[in-house]
Simulated assay, not measured.
Amino acid sequence: MYFFVSNLSFVNLYYTTSTIPQMLVNLRGPEKTISHRGCVAQLYIFLALGSTECVLLAIMAFDHYAAICKPLHYSVIMNERRCVHMAAGPWVSGLINSLVQSTLTLVAPRCGHRVIDHFFCEIPALLKLVCIDTHVNEIELNVVGALILLVPLALILGTYVIIAQAVMKIRSAESPWKAFNTCASRQLMVFLFYFTAISIYVQPSSNYSHDRGKITSLFYGIVKPTLNPFIYTLRNKDVKSALRRALTKEFWVKLR
């Protein structure tokens, strides 16, 4: 569990770092600009890490399934080598997706259009600047978006249906509630992440709304990664205990 959570933490850290600093600079200063190289780097990094998270969340759902439904075989099913291979899949798919989609978007001519009606460089907003027919780009965006978003979401839904069925068979009155309590908050954020991303990337570009797109992007690009540490770690007793000891130690060191 901690291996996949560490991967998710790394993704969220650089996922938000690729957009938030530049966005804060633009919100503060009178000149709301970004260099062409900065926009290109932001697009590639943001899309690569966002795509990685989409697949990684499905891998984490399988890890939850193995832990709850196959507890006695968990160490065999999720051995170290398999975990490394499973974690490599989201990274590779994310990099490939970003390379394909970002490149197709950037090579399209913009005919001098340079004003992006968005907080950061994102494919739907950049496609609005293109001065040629974007039908091919829209088809590619929807197809790849469906693979990256809808397939993992379907796997997560199916996995947690199986988990729910297994939990309901537990005779103890406390165990089902503890399992549901652990999974509920995580799945709420997972579904909100997928549904907001789907509303942006799995739709025709002609139906893209600037205002809705900006607000939705802020949610899955900033709000959701910010809440992940609280949901995935601070609800864990071991992490809370370690944090309490660290804060107490730091407090006493300062007093001296």
Rank of each mutant, 00 (worst) to 15 (best):
Y2A: 09
F4D: 03
L8P: 00
N12R: 02
Y14T: 09
Y14G: 02
Y15I: 01
Y15C: 00
T16G: 08
T17I: 11
M23R: 05
V25S: 04
V25P: 00
N26C: 11
N26A: 01
L27R: 09
G29W: 00
G29L: 01
P30E: 13
S35G: 14
S35Y: 04
R37D: 14
C39P: 00
Q42N: 10
Q42K: 09
Y44D: 02
A48H: 01
T52N: 01
T52K: 01
T52E: 01
L56C: 00
L56P: 00
L57A: 13
I59A: 07
A66W: 06
A66G: 01
A67T: 05
A67E: 10
P71F: 13
C83Q: 14
A87L: 02
G89W: 05
V92I: 15
S93E: 06
L95P: 12
N97K: 02
V100M: 12
S102T: 15
T105Y: 06
A108K: 11
R110Y: 05
V115E: 08
I116G: 02
I116Y: 03
I123P: 05
I123W: 10
P124M: 02
L126D: 02
C131A: 05
D133W: 08
T134R: 12
E138F: 03
G145C: 05
L147C: 15
I156C: 03
I156K: 02
I163D: 03
M168D: 13
I170V: 15
I170A: 10
R171V: 13
S175M: 07
A179S: 13
N181H: 02
Q187T: 06
Q187A: 00
Q187Y: 12
F191E: 03
F191D: 04
L192R: 04
Y194H: 15
A197Y: 08
I198G: 00
S199C: 13
I200D: 15
V202H: 01
V202M: 13
Q203L: 14
P204S: 14
S206F: 15
N207A: 14
N207H: 12
Y208T: 04
S209Y: 01
G213V: 05
I215M: 15
T216F: 07
T216E: 06
F219M: 09
Y220N: 06
Y220P: 07
I222D: 06
V223R: 06
L227A: 13
F230I: 15
R235Q: 10
K237P: 04
K237Y: 04
D238E: 08
V239L: 02
S241E: 09
L243P: 01
R244F: 11
R245F: 14
R245P: 00
L247W: 10
F251Q: 07
W252R: 12
W252Y: 15
K254D: 09
R256W: 08
